[in-house]
């Protein structure tokens, strides 16, 4: 359902979409069933002259069956949804695969800043590439991110990845993603963070390995020069 509106560009995006579809089918079934019966009753049991309503207490077992049986079916649907939800959740938030690189992401009023590990694939070294409002990643590689907030709560959200994680001041939260296609897309701040919340937009640039290497090569001298400046 979601991929009609937003591209599906991470390894787990498809799983989240499928979970949403599963829930959509199950609740859609109940929704349509309930509304159809409801409207049928409203039309069918309209007041007619000389016809009285029936007297049904609903307390006898034979009556209660009509609400207790569907209700068990609802429980079965719940089990399916819980299993699906927990599986996806575990994959996205609990089970982090080995990273190719780690990036640092810092939210502040009202910009995202990113620290890329640079040519040596290691954060915290002299060739780290710092950018504002632009995150460069390579397609097909597993990235970890270390998410921080400098002032208030922000939320790092990349709709094409189906990824969202709040950034909490005073904490470093680790997460992961693996892009599956190239292009440039929105990074949102999804948690209200003050008057500039509405302009806190960044872009994620997902590049092919060659282009990403070229970008790193292009940025490295600038970064190194900045680091070596006395």
């Amino acid at each position: 359902m979601i991929d009609r509106y937003v591209e599906t560009l991470s390894t787990y995006a498809k799983d989240i979409d499928n979970l949403i579809l599963l829930i959509g089918v199950l609740v859609g079934f109940w929704f349509i069933l309930c509304e159809v019966i409801f409207f049928y009753f409203i039309i069918h049991f309209r007041a007619k002259d000389g016809k009285r309503a029936e007297y049904i207490s609903g307390e006898e077992k034979s009556h209660k069956r009509w609400i207790s049986a569907p209700h068990l079916l609802v429980l079965v649907c719940d089990v399916f949804i819980v299993v699906g939800a927990v599986k996806v959740w575990y994959e996205v938030k609990q089970q982090l695969p080995e990273p190719y690189e780690t990036v640092r992401i810092v939210g502040q009023q009202w910009a995202w800043s990113f620290v890329h590990p640079g040519a040596d694939h290691e954060l915290g070294t002299a060739d780290d590439i710092k950018t504002v409002d632009e995150l460069h990643v390579e397609v097909g590689k597993v990235y970890h991110f270390k998410l921080e907030a400098r002032d208030v709560i922000h939320s790092f959200s990349v709709p094409v990845f189906r990824l969202k994680q709040d950034a909490i001041p005073g904490r470093v939260i680790t997460g992961w993603f693996e892009p599956t296609g190239t292009g440039t897309y929105d990074i949102q701040c999804a948690e209200i963070c003050g008057i500039g919340h509405g302009v806190m937009v960044a872009r994620i640039v997902i590049e092919s390995p060659e282009r990403h290497a070229a970008w790193v090569a292009e940025q490295s001298p600038i970064t190194l020069a900045a680091a070596n400046r006395p």
Partner: peptide, 20 residues
């Protein structure tokens, strides 16, 4: 969802056989 669904079913069942 269980109690809320039950409440909805009860509303619908209440209409059954009514004179609306």
């Amino acid at each position: 969802s269980i109690p809320i669904a039950e409440m909805c079913f009860i509303y619908i069942a209440t209409l059954y056989g009514g004179s609306i």
